[in-house]
Amino acid sequence: MKSTLFAALFVAAGMTGAYAQSSSASRAPARAPQACHSVTPQTCAIANALGRGINLGNMLEAPVEGQWGVKLEPAYIDIVAGAFTTVRLPVRWSNHAAPTADATLDEAFAKRVDQVVDALLAKGVYVILDMHHYSQLSGSALHWNEFPVEPAVLEPRLVNMWRQIAVRYKDRSPKLLFELLNEPTGRLDGEPWNELAPQVLAVVRASNPTRTVLIGPGEWNGIPALSKLRLPADRNLIVSIHNYDPFPFTHQGVEHLATPFPVGATCCDAAQRKALTNALDTARKWSQEKGYPLHLGEFGTHHVADMKSRETYARMVRDEAERRGIGWTYWEFASPAFGMYSPKTGTWLEPIRRALLD
């Protein structure tokens, strides 16, 4: 899920009740081709193949695995690979690396990530390996059990973590994609991220010259920030965007927001749908002008929302993204807060599964 402060960025999106009712597979919208004139044919093919995906969230990006109520169990690999084409794997590498500029990775943790990456690749899915929740880099408050580092080493640590990660996975399948940083924001918004991202990409390219890499804009990977994004000169990039509109609905009852939204908001009316379609149209227009394909890396709903509205929202975002040819990864699989699968019962939350996959 997305961090807390996404609220400042996004407001309303949605669809009519009639739209929500039409949930048959036959209604799947025709897919538009992605814009790809600035990338290689291989990267274009990957962008178009990512399709429907899921985030294995709140597991390896917790400060300590299990701290946020769920661990990445081996059985989850089979479950997600059997349902989705793509799995996004958020990892908090920064809390498992030396606090010094060299950021030497903890080998035991890195091997844990290896196991998950290799198990997913063995199932034939695309894997987006994501640098997630390096809180201090954006100037955000540290999570419990997340250690601080000296400000002078924040950016060098990001570069050197990726230097090691890239070498570690340089011989893996092209179905493994790297995402340089989840939701840059705060002190990274605008030019700071435009200047840092090429440095990180350069160390990746030293060992992975053609691997597909995802880079998103600042302001929490927000669509409005695409206009400020300056991409490095590289033909193997996909641009990651996130959208949780309508935010008062998707994040109702989330207690860690500065001003929590009240419970009871529903989705999705015509005005809400128009807000979402306008945002996705803005993203697609940017993509067509710049020639870089898009991936919707996150969208989802907090569990306190009513299930019918959660189903309606999931179907809406899925259909509107696919109508524009944009692959997606839902936030998320099995956490208590935003999950679509119950570890306690070992079953999907069927209305959400149906909305995303049927």
Rank of each mutant, 00 (worst) to 15 (best):
E289N: 09
N221G: 00
G69K: 09
T86D: 10
A81L: 03
R310C: 01
S240M: 13
T250G: 04
M316H: 10
N208F: 06
L120K: 06
A101P: 08
V39F: 10
D78T: 01
A275C: 03
A81D: 05
Q252H: 10
F249Q: 12
G139W: 05
A197Y: 13
A30F: 08
L231V: 04
Q42W: 03
A355N: 13
V203E: 12
G291I: 02
D245L: 11
D114H: 06
T347C: 15
L180G: 07
S94I: 03
A18K: 01
F84T: 14
N182Y: 08
Y341H: 09
R315H: 10
H302A: 06
T100L: 14
L142V: 04
N58V: 04
N221H: 04
G53T: 12
P217W: 01
P232V: 05
Q115F: 02
L231C: 05
K170I: 08
L188Y: 04
A12C: 07
V125A: 15
G53R: 12
M1D: 09
N236Y: 06
N145I: 00
R172Y: 09
F178T: 01
S342Q: 09
L177Q: 06
A225M: 04
L214N: 11
H295Y: 14
T347S: 09
K111F: 03
K71D: 11
K274R: 05
